[in-house]
Design a protein around this nucleic acid. Structure first.
Lengths: 138, 138
DNA sequence: ATATCAATGCAATGGAAGTGCAATTACTGA
DNA sequence: TCAGTAATTGCACTTCCATTGCATTGATAT
């Protein structure tokens, strides 16, 4: 079990107070968050800082971007099952039409997508929309 | 074979010159287009008109929206294989990283996506990125 | 013909993404 | 320790797309 500091250093990211806080925030959230979500959580910090921090995390493969069709980019920490570095990684995300939250279903297996002849598949973005377990459960 | 006028009327859309032109433009394109694409094609018309026309088409299930991850909403005419009205419709789109064009692969069969217990799938958005047939062929 | 409602055009707004630059903070090596 | 360097942060600003309000034009029905 490595600390957040060690993790950041292992990815060649300088450890700052801001980055630790943002990392913890993302780690606590089980869902993908927008930049505004982060802004609301850190009102004292500047948008730009938050923006660039997330971008840095993204570049270093600590965070991946999610495009769930709401038009607003969301971000989530990469988990064990998440192989963002790999071009052919299949991102599976679930967007709840009720609570509007997006979760990563990294552990969920996805069948191989076949494309017509002549097309070369490099990356797949798959967003399932519906009702999440929390909203359907009650 | 019904005319465009008949099609629009059958969907309760008033027939106007503008709408006919925009419909024809979308029909000629084999790819999904952005609002700017349409704007460039109709420089005499106002953005708002084009925007609202497409939105009207969308509401009446003549056009569907595509979110291919470029951050810009694209639109395409619904084809035979496209059942946008149906909640469980599966949108499969291919985005070419080379020419930046997005095509609808409506005829392509997709395996059923399974979601974990408690999740209810209503809609699936699937975007495959890579190299399209035109770009890979040469 | 005219009253009515929809469609269009113009202007403006809002939100998210991104950039330049100055100020600040963290690291490095003497 | 302290200066020097490089990276990070904050502020201001810009750009782009999406969207709305309102006045005007155009179409439809009685």
């Amino acid at each position: 079990m490595q600390t957040i500091e060690e993790l950041l250093e292992s990815k060649n990211i300088r450890v700052t107070a801001m980055r630790l806080l943002i990392y913890k925030f993302l780690a606590e959230k089980q869902i993908a968050v927008t930049l505004s979500n982060i802004e609301n959580a850190f009102e004292k910090a500047d948008r730009t800082t938050l923006y660039r921090t997330v971008k840095t995390f993204e570049e270093k493969d600590i965070v991946h971007q999610i495009d769930d069709g709401t038009g607003i980019t969301k971000y989530a920490l990469c988990e064990k099952g998440c192989n963002c570095e790999i071009e052919t990684d299949l991102h599976l995300h679930f967007h709840c039409n009720n609570c509007n939250e997006t979760v990563c279903l990294t552990e969920h297996k996805i069948p191989q997508i076949k494309v017509p002849d002549g097309f070369v598949s490099e990356n797949v973005n798959l967003v399932v929309k519906g009702i999440c377990d929390k909203c359907s459960g009650q």
